[in-house]
Design a binder for these strands. Structure first.
Length: 529
DNA sequence: TCTATCACTTG
DNA sequence: CCAAGTGATAG
């Protein structure tokens, strides 16, 4: 019960770190503590990335959900995650600028169903949608800024709308996913433009979840109600609840509130976690420093998640989600190495066998979303304005850019492109981007900041970024530009889209694309101007 | 399964 | 009051 999760803000648990361990933590506050964090280990090199450590906030709460089998609601309009993804980052160079971003990759290539109080595989996963990246609104910001307080990704929203114009992360219902945090050095010296872009990726296996349009396991519902302040209205114990329900419903007098009933009824553990449960907490977590290997680590159930398809969604090639907090660091080469490695298969997870999902190539195409100028948000141009969404857009100002042309080629691995001014580079594309399996595109928020990062997987996938405009930026740096990282692309460019065509007129996205992996590498500035 | 709507909470 | 986010619920 207790934990209210985010709100507290404090507790942290160390989870992963990038490379070495410098210090451990700064503070942990009290609260739960976790036990074992992972140890840090690491390795690596990259300039300055080595001492970076990341602690998942409220890990204990995440673990509670994970043990049951975390479910996250996805809606057309976008739904926040709960628990919220918040981390404490230490080991950053105070003066260096970094971009923090998240992405959520498929945990495996299966489709799940919840029956008989447990999750089971029903079939193969759908193609994976465009992987989008959510760039923390404060990005880029100095290490001092990021270290000052918890870095919250609570504004990140999940949607099941493949044509989502807001830059929310698009997921498929009844599929398993693994959130990942990436820290990219954006300093001028090295950063964006240079070739050495260093970055590291952290994966907390306890944050893996199955996306759903409505909760399947009542235990999860109960945990959400108990811990999410916004759901407080559903807490009730006892009488109140009944009364309340009765009043509300009028209809059936509930003898017992459904929720209550359900809860009791189901007690089964989730399959999901079933297995893992115990594991997860283990200290073992420490995973290896590099991720790639990750396979290793525990076998927690999460592994399911882990399975990184390489192609699929993982943006970074190497990053496979591992269970542990792994850190992948990538630096240049390592990334690749890593990537390849890991894969184990667990019963659950399977690596994506060959097929990966679709790979087909369809990419979303990006149309251009006119980026709203920084202040503006919506673009009338799109026509969206009217739409219900439009308002949102405005508010959020999130924009996505897709590059129509991908020049992925050009961009290679880690190139960053600057896009900021949105306009510049974008191209509008067609009416609407159909959904594509893996496109890559990024969105940026208002125009500022980054647009994308890249990623990629070996396959054609790319990801998109979304920046959230919304948030705050406290110290945000001048928004200047956005940068994108790209990785090299392996495959083809994006652009094609398969079907759909749509009618929608949504906005356009620009994509920058990126595909491939980001390795670390070299970014280039591209376009800027 | 998914969508839209509802009453409720937080801030 | 409002905006926004929640789970519950009916369709």
């Amino acid at each position: 019960m207790a934990n209210g999760g985010d709100q507290f803000g404090l507790a942290e648990r160390p989870d992963s770190d990038c490379m070495d361990s410098p210090k451990e933590t700064k503070q942990e506050k009290h609260s739960f503590t976790l036990n074992s964090p992972t140890s840090p280990q690491t390795a690596s090199n990259q300039q300055g990335m080595e001492g970076i450590k990341v602690f998942l906030h409220d890990r204990e709460l995440w673990t509670k959900f994970d043990e049951v089998g975390t479910e996250m609601i996805i809606t057309k309009a976008g739904r926040r995650m709960f628990p919220s993804y918040k981390v404490k980052v230490t080991g950053l160079n105070p003066k260096t600028k970094y971009i923090l971003l998240m992405d959520i990759v498929p945990g495996d290539d299966h489709r799940y169903k919840f029956a008989d109080n447990k999750w089971s595989i029903t079939g193969k996963a759908e193609p994976a949608m465009p992987g989008r990246l959510y760039v923390h609104p404060d990005s880029p910001a100095t290490g001092a800024h990021w270290s000052r307080q918890l870095v919250s990704f609570q504004k990140l929203k999940l949607t099941n709308n493949h044509l989502d114009p807001f830059g929310h992360i698009i997921l498929n219902s009844m599929h398993k996913y693994q959130p990942r945090l990436h820290i990219v050095k954006a300093d001028e010296n090295n950063g964006f433009g240079s070739k050495n872009t260093a970055f590291c990726t952290h994966v907390f296996s306890e944050t893996a979840f199955i996306a759903v349009t409505s909760y399947q396991n009542h235990k999860i519902t109960q945990l959400k109600i108990e811990n999410n302040p916004f759901a407080k209205g559903f807490r009730g114990s006892d009488d109140n609840e009944l009364h309340r329900m009765a009043k509300l419903q009028g209809k059936d007098y509930p003898v017992v509130p459904r929720s209550t009933v359900r809860q009791r009824v189901c007690s089964a553990g989730s399959p999901f976690s079933g297995e893992s449960r115990g594991l997860r907490a283990s200290p073992e977590d420490v995973g290896s420093p590099y991720s790639c290997e990750n396979g290793l680590n525990r076998s927690s159930p999460r592994e399911l998640l882990n399975a990184p398809p390489a192609h699929y969604t993982l943006p970074h090639p190497h990053l496979q989600p591992a269970q542990q907090p792994q850190v992948y660091h990538c630096t240049k080469r390592k990334a690749e190495e890593n990537c390849s490695s890991g894969n184990h298969q667990h019963p659950y997870k399977k690596p994506f066998p060959g097929g990966s999902p679709s790979e087909g190539q369809s990419y979303y195409h990006p149309s251009s979303y006119p980026a709203p100028p920084p202040g503006l948000s919506s673009n009338p141009a799109l026509g969206l304005t009217d739409s219900p969404y439009s308002s949102d857009m405005g508010q959020r100002q999130a924009c996505m850019f897709a590059s129509s042309e991908p020049r992925m080629d050009e961009l290679n691995c880690a190139s960053w492109s600057y896009t900021c001014p949105l306009s510049t580079a974008m191209t509008p594309m067609e009416p609407y981007p159909p959904y594509t399996p893996h496109p890559t595109y990024s969105s940026s928020p208002q125009g500022s900041r980054l647009s994308a990062i890249a990623h990629q997987s070996p396959s054609p996938l790319g990801e998109q970024l979304t920046h959230d405009p919304y948030q705050n930026q406290s110290s945000g740096p001048p928004p200047q530009s956005s940068q994108n990282i790209h990785s090299r692309q392996l495959s083809s460019p994006l652009r094609e889209y398969p079907r759909y065509t749509p009618n929608l007129s949504p906005p356009l996205y620009h994509t920058l694309e990126t595909h491939t992996h980001i390795r670390c590498g070299v970014p280039e500035w591209s376009a800027a101007s």
